[in-house]
Structures are given as structure tokens and as C-alpha cells.
């Protein structure tokens, strides 16, 4: 079991519905977020290109955040999902600094918070909240070990990249390009 996500940059319009859906689903306080939008413009008028990405924790196979956590609050659960156990977290912020993707934030209640791939929903057979609301259907989620999962199928069909691969983190969020 290896959960992964693919985001189609050709379809994403950067509306940020994924951000609000995550906030309401996961009680993320206003002013914070577990996922966000990045828009990169290249070129000069009128030869232009934009890449739009919905970003979040990459649930890396080789996660510096898990490795550096002094208390073990940051850990892997089934399917390679990286999670934080709030009551074990002392809020030292080492994981925040170690993450090359800036995917973690300090929750005002004193622990570090981040994307969980909505594992509480996965357990119920549902898609993560961001995937399920996206008006452009630009996100695909599933098990990479299952050749018939949405994410496996789309990664077989399309060109993709990961973010900052040189960091050696082996990210599991893929961007279709």
C-alpha cells in the first residue's frame, strides 16, 4: 500500500477550493492552511506560460520531518502517510525547518499540523476533501501499488514531475505536466 496523489497542472485553475475544503473538513483555523496554490508565470508578453499547482505535504518516502522529530510525534502510518500526533508534539519546530516544501505550520494550540491525506476519510472509503471538491477534477488519489487506482492509471498515461527531487525526499505528490 502506497498512497499518492497526482495534480494535473493543465486543468487546475488555482481557485483554492481545495484550501477551503481542507480548512472546513479538518478544522484548520482561519489564517492557516494545510494546502495552498502556487502559480508560476514564465516568459514575456505575449509569449507566456503559467503552471498552477495545488500543493500540500508530499508524504515523502524519505521524510526529513519524521527523521528529525525528537519525540516521535511525526511518524508514518499505513500507506506511507506522514502524520503528527498532537499530544506527543512539543512544538519545537524542527520538522517545519527540515521540510523543503514548507508543508507544516504551527497550530495555535501548540502543535505542528499538516496534511494527512484526510486519512479519516480514506478509512471510510472516501477521497481526501480537496480531491472530492475540486471543480476541475484535477486531482487523483489512490494506491500506487494498485495498478487500477486512479492515480496509477493517470501516472502511466501522462508526463509528470515531483517538486525539488534533488532534496532526495522521494515525494509522493506528482504533478502532471
Amino acid at each position: 500500500m502506497r498512497y499518492a496523489m497526482a495534480v494535473d497542472t493543465k486543468k487546475c485553475v488555482g481557485c483554492a477550493d481545495c484550501v477551503v475544503a481542507c480548512q472546513t473538513e479538518n478544522n484548520v483555523p482561519i489564517g492557516y492552511c494545510r494546502d495552498w496554490i502556487v502559480e508560476v508565470t514564465d516568459g514575456t508578453y505575449p509569449q507566456l506560460e503559467i503552471e498552477i499547482r495545488s500543493e500540500r505535504c508530499n508524504h515523502c518516502d524519505n521524510s526529513p520531518c519524521v527523521r528529525c522529530c525528537p519525540t516521535g510525534a511525526s511518524h508514518y502510518v499505513e500507506g506511507g502517510i506522514v502524520k503528527v500526533t498532537p499530544h506527543e508534539c512539543i512544538g519545537c519546530g524542527a520538522c517545519i525547518t527540515s521540510c523543503p516544501y514548507d508543508a507544516r505550520y504551527g497550530h495555535p494550540d501548540g502543535y505542528v499540523d499538516k496534511c494527512t491525506f484526510c486519512d479519516h476519510r480514506i478509512q471510510d472509503g472516501l477521497q481526501p476533501a480537496c480531491v472530492s471538491v475540486c471543480p476541475t477534477k484535477c486531482m487523483y488519489f489512490g494506491d500506487l501499488d494498485d495498478a487500477n487506482s486512479e492515480v496509477s492509471k493517470v501516472l502511466k498515461k501522462r508526463k509528470f514531475k515531483t517538486l525539488i527531487p534533488q532534496a532526495g525526499t522521494k515525494p509522493q505528490v506528482y504533478y502532471l505536466i
Binding site: 512544538g91 519546530g93 517545519i96 525547518t97 514548507d102 504551527g106 495555535p108 494550540d109 501548540g110 502543535y111
Partner: peptide, 10 residues
Amino acid sequence: AGLIFGAQQL
């Protein structure tokens, strides 16, 4: 990054 967190109200 690197912010110091407040009381641990979990």
C-alpha cells in the same frame, strides 16, 4: 518557520 509555539493546549 522556526516560530515558538504558545501553551500546549492540545
